[in-house]
Design a binder for these strands. Sequence first.
DNA 1: TTGTAGGCGTTATCAC
DNA 2: GTGATAACGCCTACAA
Lengths: 336, 336
Amino acid sequence: MTLDVERAGAPTLEEVARAAGVSRSTVSRVVNGSPNVTADVITAVTTAIDKLGYVPNRAARSLASRRTHAIALVIPENTAKFFADPYFASVIQGVAMHLASTDYTLSLLIASETESEKTRRYLQGGNVDGALILSHHSDDQAYVQLSRRMPVVFGGRPMSDDAYYVDVDNVAAARSATEYLVRRGKTRIATISGPHDMASGLDRLEGWRQALAAAGLPADLHEEGDFTPPSGEAAMRRLLARDEPFDGVFAASAQMASGALIALREAGLRVPEDVGIVSIDNDYFAQNALPPLTTVDQPSVRQGSTMADVLLRLIDGQDVPRTTIIPTSLVERASV
Amino acid sequence: MTLDVERAGAPTLEEVARAAGVSRSTVSRVVNGSPNVTADVITAVTTAIDKLGYVPNRAARSLASRRTHAIALVIPENTAKFFADPYFASVIQGVAMHLASTDYTLSLLIASETESEKTRRYLQGGNVDGALILSHHSDDQAYVQLSRRMPVVFGGRPMSDDAYYVDVDNVAAARSATEYLVRRGKTRIATISGPHDMASGLDRLEGWRQALAAAGLPADLHEEGDFTPPSGEAAMRRLLARDEPFDGVFAASAQMASGALIALREAGLRVPEDVGIVSIDNDYFAQNALPPLTTVDQPSVRQGSTMADVLLRLIDGQDVPRTTIIPTSLVERASV
DNA sequence: TTGTAGGCGTTATCAC
DNA sequence: GTGATAACGCCTACAA
């Protein structure tokens, strides 16, 4: 009698069709929201679906439709080294949460350079409908090429022109941070920049330069870091070793600022009394530093969700601007 | 002549077969490493594969084989709030990197509670071969049930018995941290514990108790936090407000310890001179605190890769112990 | 060892 | 509006 009870696998579209007394095609139409279906039929099918607990088989669906409903989030391994950086965690979170409200799936790829071929094949092998590339390095070229074969969106401006990306305006962010220092009366403003092989590193340096130029101040006190706390500490030591007094510092990341704070303290310099410091990133480094850092907030969770949004539109064939800039804002705390 | 050039889609198994002059079955066998194939044939097929740049179509493969070669990493949304916690980023990284050396794919799910039904269906809908659940909360029940339908491995001991999980020995970690305080001559040792609805919170509290009991010391100075810096700061304030002097503190997380440091400093207490503090987590909070924290290192990247390893074995039908404990180690710095 | 044939669960193209 | 009927690309008995 109840042959259908205790079936092994999940119910199929075919079974739903039988239960609803319609054809498979019709069930498929209902499932995919086709406009040409009678209300009665929709009701019947929906009921059957609920009763049976039907869930479309993704594999079958993508085999037939040639779309996977999956996107990849690629994190080049050299970037993964910076995984500890809360920035990446936030972006990933943003992506995942945005996707949660769609029926797309997120496939996370840590792309080791030694197996880049494998990653490339995976991406081109029709496993995903599009890719998100999270990296600020100049070695993005391979991925830029990929964007000719499928929708690709970068997080952070890639070192290439014709690519879709969403980023904060790093130049403007750095400029506003530096301008804040100027407004507070600082006249000798140094910077601890990010690495020169990352667009964000370069852009923030440029913003610092612009602000100083506009204020008629010299822009010669510059040391490079790699965004991490230790590099910030080391850079500050080098700055101090120049024996060239300064009363303000723009650090390209809060992590570096927190490192710089250590070197400053060691040197017997007080913040903000002796030197004021402003940075970028409103993460817990900024929040928990001593003193808490005045910094430029770049909403990274939002960057992630925006990236996902842009990619999905691209996949959907919509017309999307190549560049999406996320606004930043200065948050004042006690370091200046 | 060259009909095959400029084809639209990716090459199929069928085309490889034709190019190699064998049947599709044989190509399939070669691709899947079947033992019963002649060396010559393998060579021929492999050559054809390389020449054509063939990549198996995942959808077709899983439709036919009923295996997806994908696993899910589920992060309950309440956990996602703690996303800023470097612990999670590390675990995710570990999982992703382990998977990179296999042909499994990682599907990252942020499971909002309001859509838990959706997540459940996704998991049960045959989209993945197994799932990793990252959570320390007691609301894991739903996922424990899931483990009856497919391989599931938890990160952190779930509040249930019959589940596979990989975790650090939180009791032992807390005990060794506390014992260290005892060895350093502290006689009045307080604790800032984690939340009581997380196994790790409870276990670390228990470890603290055990160490004190063994040393014949009272275990009454206890305040609860939620693993975040602010909660640690607040807990320390409450501890201080008790007006019950103490010379040692075991904080269940480095983040809370860093918060506690702030309250301690405000109260004019010096670390380590007046009170020694030990915590768990060797993250940058521990490394960059002032003073740097003596702490118990729990290798979270490794926990992630181990979780993936266990799950893959489970999927492979291997016999795996339900519990995998990752060793921890004490790293001495300047806070005691 | 290798080939044949049928099927995996959907979608898509047609007729009706 | 709805229903047959091919694909979609691969796996897997089973046969040879």
